[in-house]
Design a protein around this nucleic acid. Structure first.
Lengths: 337, 337
DNA sequence: GTGTAACGCTTACTCGTGTAAGCAGCCATG
DNA sequence: CATGGCTGCTTACACGAGTAAGCGTTACAC
C-alpha cells in the first residue's frame, strides 16, 4: 500500500519521543495523563501528534510487566453445550468485566493432571480465575495464589478449599421438579440423564435432587433414563418408561424433555394422562408444545453483579472465601404434568 | 495454611537461581531445554528441584515481551445469541488453537468508533485477530498490521481490505430455501426477520438471498416478517401471512420457524397445505415437529482446519489476503414444505 | 610443555513501559 | 545578590525473562 515497508517492528514510545523531540518519560506522562510530571500544553500536543502520526499503540505485556498486575480474568471451561440461559449470563459477564477494565481470556478444557492446568493458567498472572469445570484442586488454588492471582472462583461445581464458590445448585433444580411430580401424586419417577459427557456435572446433581425429594416423600426408587440426543435413543427411553411403569419424569431440561415427549407420544403413552413430564429452562419452545411443557424456571443474577463481586475480591483479596448461591429456581406448572 | 506468609510476590527465575546456587541464565537454559547452553545433569536436577520447591511459574508477559511475539489469538465478537452449530464450531476452534500453542482471548463488542476498537486489540500484540462482527475497517486492519499482528481474519461478514475473509455466505442459505420453495410452486414468499439486533448480520443476507432467488424465478415481491422471540409476535406474524396471502415462508432458522409454525397452526393456516415453511440449522427439534420441518442444513469445516489455516498465515504473513468460503448448505426436504 | 578444543557456567544486554529522583532555568522573596 | 521554590523536562532504574558472547577449567593431542 502507501505505507512504508510493512513496519518490521511496531512503533514504541521511544519512537514517539524521538519524533516529538522529547524524552521517553515525557511521552509516558503525556499519554497517561500522569499527575507526577507537569508538561506544558505545547509539548503535550507535539507528543500526541507524534503518537497518532506513527500509529503508536502501547504494549500491554510491557505495561503489565512493569505494573505487576494484568487486568486479565481467566475463564476456564465452557466446553459443554450449555443452554441459552447460561450462555447469555456468560456473555453478560464478559461485557461487564470489560466495563470494569478487565480482559477476559478463555481457556478451553485443560489437558493436564493435578496442578498442571493451574500452572498453565498461572503463567498469565491473571488477576482472577473463574473456573467453570470441576478441574481445580486445592493445590491448584494454592499455586494460583502463590503466583499472584488475587481471586479464585469456582462456578457451579462443588466448592474447592481456598476458592470462592459461586454455587449453581443443580440438586435444587431436580428437587423442585421432583417435589412437583410427587405433589401431583406421581410415585414411580424417572429422570432423563443425557449421555453427553459435558453435561455430567449438571445431570448428576439434578438426578440426586429428584432422588432426595423422593426419599423425603417416601416414594419408590427413582430410575435414571440415559438419553443421547437422537430420536432412536428417545424411542428407547420411551419404551423403558413403559416397562418400568413410570408415571412421572423429569426431562433434564426442556430440550431433552421435548425429545422424550415426542417419543412418548409416538409410543402411545399419554402425557400427562399416563406420564407427567417436567422440563427445565423455561424455554419459549416448551410453551409451543402440546401439551405445554411444565418446567423449572431458573434465574441467575446479572453478569454485572458477578463482575462487581469479582472486582471487589480482587481489590481486597484478604477476604475469606465465601460460598454463595447464584441460582434461584421455581416451578412453572403448565399442561404436561 | 502451612505456606509462608502468602508470598507477597510470586517467585521469579532469579529466586530459583538463588536457591539452586546458579545463575539466572542457567535456570532459563534448564527450564527451556535450550540447546545453546550445555548444563550438567546434576545442575539440571538442582534447578528443577528448586523450581518445584518454590512453585515457580514463568511469567507469560515477560516472556513474550522478550520474545517479541505473544501466541495470542484475539477473537472479537460473539455477542449474538448464536445457534448450537456455530457455538460448537467456535469451541472447537478454541481447542484447536490451544493445541497449536495459541491462547484465545475474547473481546466482546467493542465500544469505540473507527480505529478505536482495533487500537484496543493491538495493545495485546496478538499474533492473529479473528473478527466475527462487522466492526473492522480497512484503517483498523492497517493499524493492526503496523502494530505487529501477523494475520487478520474476518469471519462471516463482508471482506475488509487487507484482511483474509472467511465467508459464511448467509445469502446462500436464503437462496437455497427460496429456490426450494419456488421449485415447489410457491410464488408469494415471506421471510422471517428476527428483531434481535445481534442477528442483523445473518438475517439481512438471508432475506436478500431469498429475494435473489425469487427475482431469478420471476416471482413476485418477497415480504419480510419481523418477529420477536415471543408468542404474541408469532401470532402477529401469522396474521400477516394470511393478509398477504403468502404460500411459502423461510423461517430464518428452525427455532423461529418452529415459533411461526405453531402460530400458523393456531391461526388455522395449514402447513404445508396452505403455507410451506422452511427452517435452517437442521436441529433435532425440527424433526420432532408435526409436520416435520424442512430445513437448510449447514456444514462448517472443523475448527481444527481453521486453526491450521490461521497458524499457516501467522507463519507466513506475506501471503496475500484470500477470500474463502466456509459454509456449504443443502436443503433437507421433510414435511413442512 | 604448550596449543586447542570442549565443557559448564556466568556476565551483560535486550524487549517496552512506568515512575521516582534529579536537574536546569526562571521568578520571587528576603 | 543569594536563597528558595516552582516549572518543565530528563536521567536512570525496575519489572521478568531469553540469549549471544565470554571466560575459567579440564582434557586431550601433538
Amino acid at each position: 500500500m502507501s505505507s512504508p515497508p510493512p513496519a518490521a517492528t511496531p512503533p514504541t514510545s521511544a519512537d514517539v519521543a524521538r519524533l516529538a523531540g522529547v524524552s521517553r518519560a515525557t511521552v509516558s506522562f503525556v499519554l497517561n495523563d500522569t499527575a507526577g510530571g507537569r508538561v506544558s500544553e505545547q509539548t503535550r500536543q507535539r507528543v500526541r501528534a507524534a503518537a497518532t502520526e506513527l500509529g503508536y499503540v502501547p504494549h500491554a505485556a510491557a505495561r503489565s510487566l512493569r505494573a505487576g498486575r494484568t487486568g486479565v480474568v481467566l475463564l476456564v471451561g465452557s466446553s459443554a453445550p450449555i443452554g441459552p440461559l447460561f450462555s447469555r449470563f456468560y456473555r453478560e459477564l464478559q461485557s461487564a468485566l470489560r466495563r470494569h477494565g478487565y480482559t477476559s481470556v478463555l481457556y478451553g478444557p485443560s489437558p493436564g493432571e493435578g496442578d498442571e492446568p493451574a500452572r498453565a493458567w498461572a503463567e498469565l498472572r491473571p488477576a482472577a480465575v473463574l473456573c467453570l469445570e470441576p478441574v481445580l484442586t486445592p493445590a491448584g488454588v494454592e499455586l494460583l495464589h502463590r503466583s499472584g492471582t488475587r481471586a479464585v472462583f469456582t462456578l457451579g461445581t462443588a466448592p474447592v478449599a481456598g476458592a470462592h464458590a459461586l454455587m449453581m445448585d443443580q440438586r435444587e433444580v431436580g428437587a423442585t421438579a421432583g417435589a412437583h411430580l410427587l405433589a401431583a401424586g406421581r410415585r414411580r419417577l424417572g429422570v432423563v440423564v443425557p449421555t453427553d459427557p459435558g453435561l455430567d456435572q449438571f445431570s448428576g446433581p439434578r438426578l440426586a435432587g429428584v432422588r432426595a425429594a423422593a426419599a423425603s416423600a417416601l416414594a419408590g426408587p427413582v430410575h435414571a433414563l440415559p438419553l443421547d440426543w437422537t430420536e432412536a435413543s428417545g424411542a428407547t427411553a420411551a419404551e423403558r418408561c413403559r416397562e418400568l411403569g413410570l408415571d412421572g419424569v423429569f426431562g433434564y431440561n426442556d430440550e431433552y424433555a421435548m425429545l422424550l415427549l415426542r417419543s412418548l407420544q409416538e409410543a402411545g403413552l399419554d402425557v400427562p394422562g399416563r406420564i407427567a413430564l417436567v422440563g427445565a429452562d423455561d424455554l419459549l419452545l416448551g410453551r409451543l408444545l402440546r401439551p405445554r411443557l411444565s418446567t423449572v424456571h431458573m434465574t441467575l443474577p446479572g453478569g454485572e453483579a458477578l463482575a462487581a463481586l469479582i472486582d471487589g475480591v480482587i481489590a481486597d483479596p484478604a477476604s475469606t472465601p465465601a460460598t454463595s448461591n447464584l441460582l434461584t429456581v421455581r416451578l412453572i406448572p403448565r399442561d404436561s404434568g
